[in-house]
Nucleic acid binder design. Structure first.
Length: 917
RNA sequence: GGGCGAUUAGCUCAGGGGUAGAGCGCCACGUUGACAUCGUGGAGGUCGGUGGUUCGAAACCACCAUCGCCCACCA
């Protein structure tokens, strides 16, 4: 092995071999285990959120696979209707043509071409991350069989009356010219105005003042509403107003919806352009005046002067015209929610159109019950409340989109507009018994992308065919996703799964946090704080990073700021950390239910951990080259590290079971660094490097080194697949294990390594001894190379036995020259002191040690113990404590007092001795 | 308006009714044949505030403060 760990030398080759050998496929044995990837947009590239999520899924999958499960991680991509159509349309525009010029058929062909040539970049990036998805099962939401599943679900919901078509107000994106579901609309606070207009009464006497944030919609007003109990206006209910500029008579109506406290207490009602007004209009049977066209410009039903004007141009004109008529009461500044499309960013318009809807309540009810009864469990549990909150107030789902890229709705119309729904035109004719003479036209709309995503857990398994995969891997065990997607996807999968696949789609939903930057900011292009996971793996120089962060910025003026911030944070670009360090960082940060600040300090620390492991392996290899034929004899240290590994493995299994990858990572890290490297490797040296150690003991140490290293690699593999594979391949013979890859080796069980209380307490004694001496050395500024003589005062038989048995360890690891117990009656010399229970370790001074410094050091330690003692005494002096606390707590407290008192008297003796010098 | 969460060392975060933890950073020392991407030692916190429950609260409860997120139709 090279002296230094270099991730780029090892990662890609191992992945290629794993993939070529089919190691990612379910092994076919053991209980099935399955997780489906949340299919990334086919247009997408890997961002930090993906990398985080995929690391979690990969760690879980590798863990389950090594635990002997028939494990499947199902990959694939989403056709992402709007996003993909936008990408290709942009290309067409750059070529000087348009989607409409091309026509539907050619455009769709063009998108397929783009998909086949440029789509799915993210799959290559997933490989760099080490994702052990079964590529042979890769699916795309518009594959033939998945599309067939979509059609089948649509037809069957329609036949059951759960899908209907209706003319209603929808969220209309006037830029993309499509309807959007409620979830795809983001409400943002934006500064605006509240205009107060005077609407004169039709009989010419007086006026009412109405307040609005959208003056242009007044062209579509069909009433003014007041609260029925509002004394100011009660007597005016039923009278008519004359709508200015339009000259339409509109009534004053009474409705509870009006808040008398707000504005003037009079609300203009525009049923065709506001969701509330739409409801009010229905209640009062008001006419709906649509004043917009598809672009949200004024249409031809409005007064001529405004026709063709964009909504905002019209707004200005209308305000000016009302002003000229003296009909403006006042204009206040006002902050209002502005609805914007999540893809286009355009202000969404409530707009009357024909759309397809899913009647959702009948589907929601069983889905709510599935979580209530625990058939599906959220991890952490509090997300179930968010889920219930939404599901209990769920609205019918608008599933039609006026796009060309997607699953075309399987509905046909005859010339009379009758709707026929079946899988194909032929099916329609058969099903509805229509002759060849009946002309049929297919609906132009496609389905919301999330409609097909909702079927993902079973459509990828071959549904509606009852495939082996469906039987084995549905329901999946867990879904791993972010909270932002609970409504979009999780809820809908649960509804569709229960309806069509006969069971919940997964048993548990692991919700992870959002990756933010080091300051807690969301990562976004416009903020210029985006980190590319690939840059963390491979490293990137400053110029490239600057270029990436400023290329294609929507707002050019942000560029200098982003550049400056980037230069400040990454003066030398980003170092190469490797996929394993990145993955370990994600795992270590994967605390549930909390956003995560991505801190470069962490990834650097974990890259160093890789290096530590690498070098520990080098040491092990160096010492296990010639494996002799001797029977191994295991020393206390050997048995100690095995026992520690027993506990570590048990802890890791517990943490995985609770999805606490952070704790699992921490447990392995601690064991590897602080027990295996810091202690065991050091404790093995005196044996392996001593001429007088027996061949059997040496063999015991060699075997232990190899066994423990090999097990650590397996423990670590789900989180760090590459480095563990690399080292493991070079370790396997030394550890006497078979296999072509660590991936398919069993995960270590606690039972594989014996717990050994005796060895643990023995080695703990050795550790305390050495730590005591190190502390003296460190604080007394004694050179680390100087071997110290140590005298023991107040030894028990055990102490004497341990000191003798482990003399070599104490000498070598503790840099101790000699260890000797004081004889009975022997006067201890002036010395620096460390306490080891009852035992005192004395390091004679003889010019080594500064008396005053030692006095101060001991006094400090004494004061600490004194403080502890006083706290304990106060407790025990309190009869309530003694009477009420559990007996073992009281006993423990008493024991502590005894111990503190003993230590204090030791300190006192030593200090007194120093004083006499 | 409804819901959820956070507040612990300089920074990023674990923990959890009985002794306050890690990484990074900081200080000192160090080329001991795995590792300076390292080793050894050290400094550093009245666990946001106030009340309550309890023998005992940083932890449980209530309220408050600050910050954040999600949902919702006040024109």
């Amino acid at each position: 092995m090279d002296k230094t760990y270099r991730p780029r030398d090892i990662e890609q080759a191992h992945y290629a071999r794993w993939e070529a050998n089919g190691y990612f496929k379910p092994g076919g044995h053991g209980e099935p285990w399955c997780v489906v990837i949340p299919p990334p947009n086919v247009t997408g590239t890997l961002h930090m959120g993906h990398a985080f999520q995929d690391t979690i899924m990969d760690a879980l999958t590798r863990y389950q696979r090594m635990c002997g499960r028939n494990a499947l991680w199902q990959p694939g991509t989403d056709h992402a209707g709007i996003a993909t159509q936008m990408v290709v349309e942009r290309q067409l525009n750059a070529e000087g043509t348009t989607r409409t010029a091309l026509g539907r058929e050619q455009f769709v062909e063009r998108v397929w071409k783009w998909k086949n040539e440029s789509g799915g970049q993210i799959n290559q990036q997933l490989r760099r991350l080490g994702a052990s998805v079964d590529w042979s099962r890769e699916r795309f939401t518009m594959d033939d069989d998945l599309s067939a599943a979509v059609t089948k679900v649509f037809v069957s919901l329609f036949d059951e009356g759960l899908i209907y078509r209706g003319k209603r107000l929808v969220n209309w994106d006037p830029q993309l010219h499509t309807a959007l579901s409620d979830l795809e609309v983001l409400q943002e606070d934006e500064a605006g105005h509240l205009w107060h207009f005077r609407y004169p009464f039709a009989d010419g006497e007086g006026y009412l003042v109405v307040a609005t944030t959208r003056p242009e919609t007044m062209l579509g007003d069909s009433a003014v509403a007041v609260h029925p109990d509002d004394e100011r206006y009660r007597h005016l209910i039923g009278r008519d107003l004359m709508l200015p500029l339009v000259d339409r008579r509109i009534p004053v109506i009474a409705d509870d919806y009006v808040d008398p406290e707000f504005g003037s207490g009079c609300v203009k009602i525009t049923p065709a352009h506001d969701f509330n007004d739409y409801e009010v209009g229905k209640r009062h049977d008001l006419p709906q005046y649509n004043i917009f066209d598809d672009n949200a410009a004024i249409n031809d039903d409005a007064p001529e002067v405004y026709r063709g004007l964009d909504r905002y141009v019209a707004r200005e004109r209308i305000v000016a015209d009302l002003d000229a008529l003296g009909l403006i009461d006042k204009i206040d500044d006002y902050e209002r929610k502005v609805p914007r499309g999540d893809r286009s960013g355009a202000v969404v318009e409530p707009y009357l159109t024909n759309q397809w809807y899913v009647k959702i309540k009948p589907l929601a009810e069983p889905a709510i019950e599935a979580v209530e009864t625990g058939r599906i469990r959220f991890v952490p549990d509090n997300w179930s409340r968010t889920y219930f909150e939404w599901m209990n107030n769920i609205q019918d789902w608008c599933i039609s989109r006026q796009l060309w890229w997607g699953h075309r709705i399987p509905a046909w119309y005859d010339d009379a507009g009758t709707i026929y729904v079946a899988a194909s035109e032929d099916d329609v004719r058969r099903k509805y018994d229509l002759g060849k003479d009946v002309a049929l036209r297919q609906d132009d709309d496609v389905l919301d992308t999330w409609f097909s995503s909702a079927l993902w857990p079973f459509s990828t398994m071959g549904w509606p065919q009852q495939t082996e995969a469906l039987k084995a891997f549905y329901p999946g065990n867990v879904l791993v996703t972010g909270f932002d997607i609970i409504f979009f996807w999780v809820a809908r999968m649960i509804m569709m799964g229960l309806k069509f696949a006969g069971d919940v789609p997964f048993r548990e939903v692991y919700i992870h946090g959002l990756i933010r930057d080091q300051d807690g900011q969301k990562m976004s292009k416009s903020k210029g704080n985006v980190l590319d996971p690939l840059d963390l793996i491979d490293g990137v120089d400053l110029d490239t990073l600057l270029e990436k962060r400023t290329r294609g910025l929507m707002q050019d003026h942000l560029k200098p700021k982003i550049e400056a911030a980037t230069r400040r944070q990454f003066p030398n670009g980003i170092e190469e950390y490797g996929a394993d360090a990145l993955r370990f960082t994600f795992a270590a940060l994967a605390t549930t239910g909390r956003d995560i600040r991505f801190d470069l300090g962490r990834i650097e620390g974990y890259r160093n951990f890789c290096n530590k492991l690498w070098n520990a392996a080098r040491y092990v290899h160096m010492n296990t080259e010639d494996v002799g034929s001797a029977e191994p004899e295991f020393s206390s240290a050997d048995r100690w590290i095995r026992s520690r590994l027993h506990h570590a493995a048990a802890a890791v299994h517990e943490h995985f079971a609770r999805y606490r990858l952070d704790l699992a990572a921490q447990a392995i890290y601690d064991f590897t660094w602080y027990e295996f490297c810091d202690w065991y490797l050091e404790l093995s040296k005196p044996v392996l490097q001593a001429d007088d150690a027996s061949a059997e003991l040496k063999q015991g140490a060699r075997r232990t080194l190899a066994d423990v290293l090999e097990a650590v690699l397996r423990l670590l593999h789900p989180i760090m697949p590459f480095i563990t594979e690399e080292i493991w391949l070079q370790t396997r013979q030394r550890a006497g294990v078979e296999g072509d890859t660590i991936m398919l080796r069993p995960y270590p069980l606690a039972a594989d390594f014996a717990a050994d209380e005796d060895a643990e307490s023995e080695i703990e004694w050795v550790q305390q001894f050495i730590l005591g001496i190190r502390q003296i050395r460190g604080e007394m500024d004694i050179s680390p190379g100087k071997a110290l003589p140590v005298l023991m005062q107040g030894t028990t038989d055990t102490d004497n036995a341990l000191a003798e048995r482990h003399a070599a360890l104490l000498q070598r690891v503790g840099r101790v020259e000699s260890v000797r117990a004081l004889d009975a009656g022997e006067e201890p010399p002036a010395a620096a002191t460390a306490l080891l229970g009852d035992l005192r370790l004395l390091v004679p001074m003889e010019g080594l040690i500064d008396v005053d410094a030692e006095r101060q050091r001991l006094a400090k330690q004494r004061d600490r113990v004194q403080a502890d003692l006083e706290r304990s005494r106060a407790k025990l002096d309190n009869p309530k404590f003694v009477n009420n606390a559990p007996a073992d707590v009281v006993t423990k407290e008493q024991a502590r007092i005894t111990e503190f008192e003993r230590q204090l008297s030791r300190f006192a003796e030593q200090l007194e001795k120093l004083d006499r010098l």
